[in-house]
C-alpha cells in the first residue's frame, strides 16, 4: 500500500519539475485567492467579534457653551439621557475636566491652567448602540447649549476596525473571487500541461494495462498539492498580516484585546480548502483522461 502511494506521489511530483513556472503561477494565485477569500473572511469575523467587545466602550464627549447656568447644564444632561441609544451621560465640569486631562496626559504640566482653565464644561456619554452614533451626534448638535462642532467621538479604533471590516468585505470578496477564478484556471492549465507532457507515459500505462485510477490519481494529487501549497502560502501571508493589524490596533487602544489567529486550526482550514480547491480544478482538467477519452 505504502509502495503504491509512494509511486503515485512520485508521479505527481515529477510534474513539478516539468512545469515549475506554471506550477509557481498556479500556487501563488491560489494562495492569493485563499488569502483574500478565506483569510480575510476569517479576519472579518474576528474583527466583528472585536467590534462587539468594544461596543460598551463607545463614547462621545459633548462640549457645552460657556456661561450656562447650572439649571441649563442639568437640562442639557437630561436631554442627552433621554436620547435613544444613550446608556449613560455624566456632567464633567471644567475643573474636573482639567483633572481628567491631567490624568490622561501626565507629561503635560497643567498647573498653569488652574486659574485660567481653557477647557469647557462637558458631558461624557456612553452609547448602548454604536450604530446610532451619527443620529445622536446630529440631535445633540441641534441643541443651543452645545458648542458648534462640539461633539467629539472617541471611537478611532472603532472607525479603524470599521474600515478594515468594510475593506476586507470589499477586497476579500471582489478580488478573492477574481483570484479564485484565475487560480482555478491556472491550476486547470497546469494539469492540462501535465497531461500533454505525460501523454507518452499515459499511453504506456494504458498499453500495459494500468488501471484508470493509476493514470488519473497523479493528476489529482498534483492539483491537490498545488492547492495545498497555495493554502500554506496564504497562511503565511495571513499570519503576518494579522500580526501587522494587531500592532496597529494596540497602538490605537492599548487595552484592546486582540486575539491572533489560532495557528493549528487556521493552517488546517487553509490546507484543506486548498486541497479541495486543487482537487476540483484538477478533476475538471482531467475529466477526459478519467473517462478514457484522451
Amino acid at each position: 500500500m505504502l509502495d503504491r502511494i509512494e509511486f503515485l506521489i512520485t508521479e505527481a511530483l515529477t510534474a513539478f519539475r516539468r512545469n515549475h513556472w506554471m506550477t509557481f503561477a498556479a500556487v501563488t494565485t491560489a494562495a492569493m485567492a485563499l488569502f483574500l477569500l478565506g483569510g480575510l473572511g476569517f479576519a472579518y469575523f474576528r474583527l466583528e467579534g472585536l467590534m462587539a467587545e468594544l461596543r460598551q466602550d463607545y463614547r462621545l464627549r459633548v462640549f457645552l457653551k460657556d456661561g450656562l447656568t447650572q439649571e441649563q447644564k442639568s437640562q442639557a444632561l437630561g436631554t442627552i439621557r433621554n436620547l435613544d441609544g444613550v446608556e449613560t451621560a455624566t456632567l464633567i465640569d471644567r475643573r474636573k475636566g482639567l483633572e481628567v486631562f491631567a490624568q490622561e496626559n501626565p507629561d503635560i504640566p497643567v498647573a498653569d491652567f488652574v486659574n485660567d482653565n481653557p477647557l469647557p464644561d462637558a458631558i461624557h456619554v456612553t452609547l448602548t448602540e454604536i450604530d446610532k452614533t451619527p443620529q445622536i451626534t446630529e440631535q445633540i448638535l441641534k441643541q443651543t447649549w452645545v458648542e458648534p462642532n462640539g461633539v467629539r467621538s472617541l471611537n478611532e479604533l472603532r472607525l479603524f476596525l470599521q474600515s478594515l471590516i468594510s475593506g476586507s468585505r470589499l477586497v476579500g470578496f471582489t478580488l478573492g473571487s477574481i483570484m479564485l477564478l484565475t487560480g482555478g484556471i491556472l491550476i486547470y492549465n497546469t494539469i492540462r500541461l501535465t497531461i500533454m507532457a505525460r501523454r507518452r507515459e499515459m499511453r504506456i500505462m494504458e498499453l500495459v494495462g494500468a488501471n484508470r485510477r493509476t493514470i488519473v490519481l497523479p493528476l489529482l494529487v498534483e492539483g491537490m498539492i498545488d492547492g495545498m501549497l497555495g493554502g500554506l502560502v496564504a497562511f503565511i501571508f495571513l499570519f503576518f498580516s494579522v500580526r501587522a493589524i494587531e500592532g496597529i490596533i494596540l497602538s490605537l487602544d492599548s487595552f484592546a484585546k486582540f486575539q491572533g489567529i489560532p495557528v493549528g486550526p487556521t493552517l488546517f482550514l487553509l490546507l484543506s480548502a486548498g486541497a479541495v480547491y486543487g482537487l476540483v480544478c484538477s478533476m475538471l482538467a482531467s475529466r477526459d483522461v478519467r473517462t478514457g477519452v484522451a
Partner: peptide, 16 residues
Amino acid sequence: VPETVPALRRKMGIVP
C-alpha cells in the same frame, strides 16, 4: 466496458 479494458490488456503484450 472501459473499466475492464486494463484487465484485457494485461492478457496481451503490445509492442507499438
